[in-house]
Every structure is written in structure tokens, then in C-alpha cells.
Design a protein around this nucleic acid. Structure first.
Lengths: 212, 212
DNA sequence: TAGATTGTTAATCGATTAACAATC
DNA sequence: TAGATTGTTAATCGATTAACAATC
């Protein structure tokens, strides 16, 4: 269930194309070539053509891609127009920042509630979303058929939260905790893992040597 | 200057090994095998051995890896023990969340100041760090030899901020803005791009079909 | 038509995995 | 020694890139 046919690297580039096309569309352009997209996104034109051919054949040889058509198809393919509802578990600073971020709406994502175990946080409102006790997770997820769970708890609690999400019926998890979490087959997990990225950056700072 | 010899996928896994070894060390274990690490991290043992052999030869055939030694070497290799100083540009919710996150200290990262263009934010304190006017960026970065810049501004401002960071002498940039930014050769850029990950998650929600 | 650009095939590249001799 | 596990070589896999016939 994990191999959908579309290669992961390709899938991860589609949002870039979508974003670029939205800008180009905004600017009133009707047609773009893979060459031009490549220059703007710093990717080889051949890769872009290959990626786009995973969806369908859109382009017209000798002309390029029709912006509106390609944009609409990417939006459809990625499911961006569909309404998606998510809960955030962990109402700390990061959880609050995500719950308050207005940009998610453009992707069809609505965060409907936060959960926490801290009695001081339960009952609060964050950007007009309620903060509930973690025990209420299964009930709310089940009643509202929530599809996505966002984990913003400390590392030590991450696995237990993921397990609770899966048990509640969530099938897509976005994990921000600095911990490796395991999920059963059939559950899609994407981890941000800032700590790992930070370690990578640390390596590159070391390689640069100290400026001075 | 971008190809250091170590493959990017390998580099991105090293922090996982480091984290696992820190846990194992905490638990008092003296030796681990690649097999055991692989089970814990859900990676093939052969891949772990290959990755680790990029650093040096640590393991003892028939025995395994000495936890303390490997941990120390990873820490050294990734430069985690070195002090690193960063500035955050964009003192919104995400910028504040990052500036307040206590976990970065374990990676040697200290955020020394935030910057913003909003007069209402300039002069505030976030987790005991000052918020300065963006114009002051070059001065502070130059005087303190800041190595890392963290971008948490809206997409439209990201490129200008990156340019200002580079001009100020920053060589490693961690970008959280949902925009592709370009940097000159010699500058290391790592982008979180939550929006792209969200688009990927959206695709998988669509594929699951609505639960109901 | 001539010029441009696609979609796709084939060649290249690099990473993952399996297997095993070397070593403790 | 016998059993275990490494480091590395070779085989496999999959993605990127280059080239080009097909098409507008």
C-alpha cells in the first residue's frame, strides 16, 4: 500500500511545480515550458517533463504546458482542493504555531482541535480551536472522521501518541517530535525531524570552519 | 564545495544513529551490533555498517560497536559539541517557537537574537532573546561571527532575507519559509518546506479515500 | 515549412542490498 | 576452536540525465 506507482522523489517535487505554476498563473501567463520551469526551480528540464508525465500527457510539443490546465491537474492529483481535517496532539509552542498558521488553509487543511495532557492547557483556546484532554482523542477523531494527526509532543511521548492516533482511526500522521516512530502498514507517516536536519547543518558549519 | 565525500542519504541517517546510541548509552549498554541498531531504527544492518564505515572503522568483528566510542565519534563528526550561534529572522509564531525550543541546546545551537521588520515586535524579548530591526542584521552577524541564519518570514520575503544573510557573512541557512530560495555556491541551505510535505500528505489522504 | 518543445527511450549515475572473507 | 559480526566487494535496484523521434 506504500508504493503507489509514483516515485517518492517525483511526488516530493510536484508541490514545487504546483507552487511555481500558481505564481505564474497569478502573473497572467498562459503557457510555460519545462525549460523555463527548470530555470526557475533549479531543476533539469528533462526531470520536470519526466515527473509531469507521471500524471498524464499535458504538454504540447513545440508549445509547452498550458498553465491553467497543469495547475488544475496538479491540484487534483495532490488532492489540495479536498477538505482535510487534522488534530494536533501537543499544545506547546510548536503545536500552537502550527494550529495558528493561516497558510494551511490554502492546502485545504483545517486543524479542528488540539490535545494535551497538561491540565493547565486543557480548556484553553488556540486560534479559536479548543484544547482537549488527550483521553478525548479517540472520541473526537471517530465522530468527525479526522484523517490526519499532527504530533508535537516531546520525543518520549511520540510513540504512544502515534499508537493512540492509529487506534482512533487516523491514517496519515505528520510527526514533528524528534523521535523515530513506528506505524503499522497502511498508515502514512511523514516526519519533520528538525533535530536531524539540525545535526546535518551542524556538520556543514563544522566543515566551513569558523568564520573569523 | 557541496560534495564532501559523504553521500547525502548517509549524512541524513547519522543523526538517527547518534540519537539511538545516546539512548543506548543512557541505558548503560557498552556494545551494540549493526543488527540491533537496524531493528530499532528499521533500517537494514548492512546499510548501517556501510554508513558508519564512512567515518572510520570502529566496530570489532564478532563483537559489535563500542557504544561510547561510536557515540563520541558521531558527535565529533557532526560537530554537535561545537558551539554554534544562530539568528532567527521573522519573529512570528514559528520564529518564536524555534527561539524558545530548549532542545536545540543539546545540539550546541544557541539562538542569540531575532529580527523582524514589524515595529510592534522590535524591542520585544522572546525567551530572553532580543528582537531587533532587520537593518541591524549585518552589524550583529558581523560582530558576533554568527554562522547560521534561520528564516521564518512569509514566502514573499524569504529570498531577500536569504540575500541579506549571505551578504552579512552567514554560510549556513535553515529556511522554514514556504518558498524556494537560491543561494550562491559555498552557502549551505537546508529547507524545511512544510507546505511541500503537507501537499505530499494531502496526496496520501486522497489515496486512502475518505474514512466514513 | 522551420523552429520549438514534448514524451520517452536508453545510458548514466549513485545508492541499497546481499554475500562473504577477514577478524575477534 | 566455534560462533558472531564486521568492513567491503559485487550485484541489484531505482532515479537522473541525455538524446531524439514525434508533434505542434
Amino acid at each position: 500500500m506504500d508504493k503507489p506507482g509514483i516515485p517518492r522523489p517525483t511526488l516530493s517535487r510536484l508541490p514545487l511545480y504546483h507552487r511555481f505554476l500558481a505564481q505564474v498563473s497569478e502573473a497572467g501567463r498562459a503557457v510555460v515550458s519545462s525549460e523555463e520551469m527548470g530555470r526557475a526551480l533549479n531543476l533539469p528540464a528533462a526531470q520536470i517533463r519526466k515527473d509531469l508525465s507521471c500524471l498524464a500527457e499535458f504538454g504540447r510539443p513545440g508549445v509547452g504546458y498550458e498553465v491553467a490546465e497543469l495547475l488544475a491537474n496538479l491540484e487534483e492529483f495532490l488532492g489540495l482542493a479536498n477538505d482535510k481535517e487534522a488534530v494536533v496532539v501537543g499544545a506547546g509552542r510548536l503545536g500552537q504555531a502550527l494550529a495558528s498558521y493561516p497558510g494551511f488553509a490554502a492546502y485545504g487543511l483545517r486543524i479542528v482541535a488540539l490535545f494535551d495532557v497538561d491540565p493547565a492547557k486543557i480548556g484553553l483556546e488556540v486560534a479559536e480551536r479548543p484544547v482537549f484532554a488527550l483521553e478525548k482523542l479517540a472520541d473526537l477523531v471517530g465522530r468527525l472522521h479526522i484523517q490526519m494527526g499532527i504530533i508535537t509532543v516531546p520525543a518520549a511521548a511520540a510513540q504512544a501518541v502515534a499508537d493512540a492516533m492509529v487506534a482512533a482511526g487516523i491514517t496519515v500522521i505528520w510527526n514533528f517530535a524528534p523521535a523515530r516512530v513506528g506505524v503499522p502498514a497502511g498508515i502514512w507517516l511523514e516526519s519533520e525531524d528538525l533535530a536531524s536536519h539540525l545535526a546535518t547543518l551542524s556538520y556543514h558549519i563544522k566543515r566551513r570552519g569558523r568564520k573569523a
